[in-house]
Design a protein around this nucleic acid. Structure first.
Length: 467
RNA sequence: GGUCCCAUCGUCUAGCGGUCAGGACACCGGCCUCUCACGCCGGUAACAGGGGUUCAAUUCCCCUUGGGAUCACCA
C-alpha cells in the first residue's frame, strides 16, 4: 500500500512551529515510506481565511524545503463536491435540517453545563422531517448509543461513548460545509490513508469516524501527536515569543536545524540528537513518537543551530548567509573568498546573524575601531611591533598560516613581547574589535593588500592620537 | 464542570521486569589558548504519591495528585 499523508493548514495566520512540526511528521513519514504527501488549504471559513496567510504558509514550507506531491487543494473550490455528499446524507437519512435558533441552543448548553453535564444539542429537530428553509442548518444524525473506538498509532485504542456526541452541524445556514465534514470528504476523495495531526484533534476523531461509517468508507490510520507547549506549559502561542517559522529564518536559523529540533521534540532515535535531513527521512518512523507534550526550548534549538552551522559546507551556508550580509551592506558573493570567510566563523557562530556580524570586518574598507578596543590596544607601545610586522609581511609572498606564525615569532623575539601583546593590537587594527577568529586565519583570508593597509592605518591612528 | 490524553534530571529524551537509571541542552569546575569561540575531561541533577501483580518494579494494573487538550453555524 502506498502511504498517502497530508498537511491541511487553515490560512488564518502564519505557519507556526507547532503546525510545521505536524507538517514535518507527515512529510517525513511519506518520504520515508516512499509515499505521497498532499497539501490542502482548509479555507471553508471564508471570513477568517486570507490570501496573505496562504502566501505566508507557502513561504514557510518552501524555506523549510518541505515539498508536496499533490495540491495545494483549496477547500473553498470544492464546495460542489461537498454539496453532493451532503445531499447523499440527506437522502440516506444520515442528516437532517434543523431550525433551532442559536440563542436557544446557547441556553440549552448553559443549562447542561450548570447541571454538570456535557453541553450538547438535544435533537429537537431530529425526527421532524423538516424541509430546507433559509435559516436551517444541516445536522448529522449521530448514533446515540454504543461506542466509537479510535485506534491511534501513537496513543493506542481510545474508547468514546457515542452518548457523549451530539448531532453536530455539517452544513451552515449559509450553505457552507463545516470542518469535520469536509475533512472526511477530502480525506476519502484524496485517498488519504494516514492521518497524523495534533493531539487537539483527538476529540474530533470519533465524530469523523462516524462520518466514515455513514459513508461506508474504510478508516485511515490515525496518529495524534502531542502538542508543543510554551515555557509555562500551556499551548504554544504568540505570547511565548517567536512562534512563526519565518521568524526563525529571520533570526538566522538554518531550516535543517529547525527541522532537526522540531522532529526531535517528541520523537527520538536512541541517543542521537543531530540529524541531517536525509538521516531524518531514513530513520523517521511513527513508532518512535512520544506520548507526552513537549516544551519548546529555544536554548536547545540554538545549540542545535550552532551544530548545523558547524556541520554545513561553506558553499551550502553561503546561500543562507548572503541575505544577512547584504542586509548589512556587504558586497559579497558566493565563491572561494566567502567560503574561507565562513570557515573562520562557523565554529563561533550560533546563528547566521552572529556569523554575518562577525564577517563584517572582512568586507569593510575602512575599519572603525571600537572606542574601548582602540583605547586599550592601539597605543605607542605597540608601534615597534607594528612596524616590524609591516616590514616582515611586506617581504612575504604567500600568506600561509605557517609562514605567518614564523613572522610573528620573529617579531616576538625582536621586541620581547608575548604573542598576546602583539595579537590583540593587530586584531584591533584588522577588525576594529577585540574579538575575532584566530589572528593568523584572518590575516590569511584578508590577504596582503588589506592587511598592509589596515596595519598602516593603525600606525597612523596611534601617531595621531599621541598628539 | 463533562470527556479525552499525558507523567524519568530545570528542558528534550533513552529505557520496553533484574541498569551504579544512559545521552543531549542549560548550569558548575578543569584543560587547551593570540581574543571570543570550538574542542576535550569531569561534576550537580530525575523515575509525582499511594496501593496492588511479581522472587523482582522506573517498566504491568488501579487510585490519588499534577499538567494538557477539547466541549462553536473555528479549524
Amino acid at each position: 500500500m502506498v502511504i498517502i499523508t497530508r498537511f491541511p493548514p487553515s490560512p488564518t495566520g502564519y505557519l507556526h512551529v507547532g503546525g510545521a512540526r505536524t507538517a514535518l511528521f507527515n512529510w517525513l513519514y511519506a518520504r520515508h515510506m516512499n509515499g505521497k504527501f498532499i497539501l490542502r488549504i482548509e479555507d471553508t471559513d471564508i471570513k477568517r481565511s486570507t490570501q496573505a496567510s496562504v502566501d505566508a504558509i507557502f513561504e514557510a514550507l518552501e524555506w523549510l524545503e518541505i515539498d508536496w506531491d499533490e495540491g495545494p487543494f483549496f477547500q473553498s473550490r470544492r464546495f460542489d463536491i461537498y454539496q453532493t455528499y451532503i445531499q447523499k446524507f440527506l437522502d440516506s437519512g444520515h442528516a437532517y435540517y434543523c431550525i433551532c435558533s442559536q440563542e436557544k441552543i446557547d441556553i440549552m448548553r448553559k443549562e447542561a453545563m450548570a447541571a454538570g453535564g456535557k453541553p450538547k444539542y438535544d435533537g429537537t429537530c431530529r425526527d421532524k422531517g423538516l424541509a430546507k428553509t433559509s435559516n436551517a442548518v444541516i445536522r448529522f444524525r449521530a448514533p446515540a448509543t454504543g461506542t466509537t473506538i479510535v485506534k491511534d498509532i501513537i496513543k493506542g485504542s481510545i474508547v468514546f461513548q457515542n452518548s457523549e456526541q451530539d448531532d453536530f452541524i455539517i452544513c451552515r445556514s449559509d450553505g457552507t460545509p463545516t470542518y469535520n465534514f469536509v475533512v472526511v470528504v477530502d480525506d476519502i476523495t484524496m485517498g488519504i490513508n494516514t492521518v497524523i495531526r495534533g493531539d487537539d484533534h483527538l476529540n474530533n476523531t470519533p465524530r469523523q469516524i462516524m462520518l466514515y461509517n455513514a459513508l461506508g468508507s474504510p478508516l485511515p490510520a490515525f496518529g495524534h501527536v502531542p502538542m508543543v507547549l510554551g515555557k509555562d506549559r500551556t499551548r504554544l502561542s504568540k505570547r511565548h515569543g517567536a512562534t512563526s517559522v519565518t521568524a526563525y529564518r529571520d533570526m538566522g536559523y538554518l531550516p535543517d536545524a529547525l527541522i532537526n529540533y522540531l522532529v526531535r521534540l517528541g520523537w527520538s532515535y536512541g541517543d542521537q540528537e543531530f540529524f541531517t535531513r536525509e538521516e531524518l527521512i531514513e530513520k523517521f518512523t511513527l513508532e518512535n513518537i512520544g506520548k507526552s507534550p513537549g516544551i519548546f526550548d529555544q536554548e536547545k534549538l540554538l545549540a542545535l543551530n550552532a551544530d548545523h552551522i558547524k556541520a554545513a559546507s561553506p558553499r551550502n551556508l553561503s546561500d543562507h548567509l548572503l541575505p544577512f550580509l547584504k542586509e548589512r551592506g556587504c558586497i559579497a558573493e558566493k565563491g572561494d573568498f566567502l567560503d574561507s570567510v565562513i570557515k573562520t566563523l562557523n565554529t563561533r557562530s550560533k546563528t547566521l546573524i552572529d556569523m554575518a556580524d562577525g564577517a563584517l570586518f572582512y568586507f569593510q574598507e575602512n575599519i572603525l575601531y571600537e572606542e574601548k578596543a582602540a583605547k586599550k590596544f592601539l597605543k605607542p607601545v605597540s608601534l615597534e611591533a607594528f612596524k616590524q610586522l609591516i616590514d616582515q609581511l611586506e617581504s612575504l609572498d604567500t600568506f600561509s598560516e605557517k609562514a605567518l606564525e614564523n613572522v610573528f615569532k620573529k617579531v616576538m623575539d625582536d621586541t620581547g613581547l608575548k604573542l598576546g601583546k602583539i595579537a590583540q593590537p593587530v586584531r584591533v587594527a584588522l577588525t576594529g574589535k577585540t574579538v575575532s577568529p584566530g589572528i593568523f586565519e584572518i590575516i590569511e583570508v584578508l590577504g596582503k593588500k588589506q592587511v598592509m593597509s589596515r596595519l598602516q592605518n593603525a600606525v597612523q591612528f596611534i601617531k595621531d592620537s599621541e598628539v
